[in-house]
Amino acid sequence: MTYIAIIGDIISSKKIEQRPEVQKKLQRILEEINTYYASVITSPFTITTGDEFQALLLPNSIVFKIIDTISMQFQPYQIRFGIGLGSILTDINPQQSIGADGPAYWQARSAINYIHDKNDYGINHLAVSLDDSNMTEYINAVLSACEFIKSKWTTSQYEILEGLLKEGIYEEKFSHKNMAQLLGLSPSSFNKRLKSSGLKIYLRNKKLASDLLLKAFEKKKGEVKNDQS
Rank of each mutant, 00 (worst) to 15 (best):
D117M: 12
H176K: 11
I112A: 03
T136D: 04
H176W: 07
E172G: 05
I169R: 09
I160F: 04
N191A: 10
A127W: 02
G198K: 06
S144E: 10
A141Q: 13
S186H: 06
A180I: 03
S129V: 00
T154L: 12
S144K: 15
L130Q: 00
S129A: 12
S156M: 05
A209Q: 00
I112G: 05
L203S: 03
K207S: 10
R193L: 14
E167V: 01
L165Q: 14
N205R: 15
H125R: 12
E159S: 15
S133P: 08
Y158F: 09
K206W: 06
K206E: 10
S186D: 00
L214K: 10
L165R: 13
K118S: 07
N119E: 05
I201R: 10
Y105E: 01
I201H: 10
L212H: 03
Y114F: 13
K118N: 15
N124P: 06
S189Y: 10
N178V: 13
S156A: 14
S129P: 01
I123V: 14
L214S: 09
Y158I: 00
N191E: 09
A108C: 03
E147F: 02
M179D: 01
D117T: 06
W153Q: 05
I123H: 03
P103S: 05
S133T: 12
L208A: 11
L199G: 02
I98T: 14
S189D: 10
K195V: 05
T136Q: 14
G102I: 08
L185A: 02
K150Q: 14
A108W: 01
S186G: 07
Y121P: 01
E162H: 11
D132A: 05
G99A: 04
G198E: 04
Y121A: 14
Y114W: 10
D211C: 03
L194Y: 11
I160H: 06
G184A: 02
G168W: 13
F190I: 07
G102D: 03
I139T: 05
R204T: 15
N113C: 00
W106H: 15
E137Y: 08
I112V: 11
H116N: 09
N205L: 15
N191C: 07
L165Y: 09
E162T: 13
D101N: 15
S196M: 12
E159A: 15
D211I: 01
L182A: 03
A104M: 13
N134P: 01
L214N: 12
A100Q: 14
V142S: 01
A108E: 00
P187C: 04
W106M: 11
K200G: 02
E147C: 05
A141K: 08
S144L: 12
A145G: 05
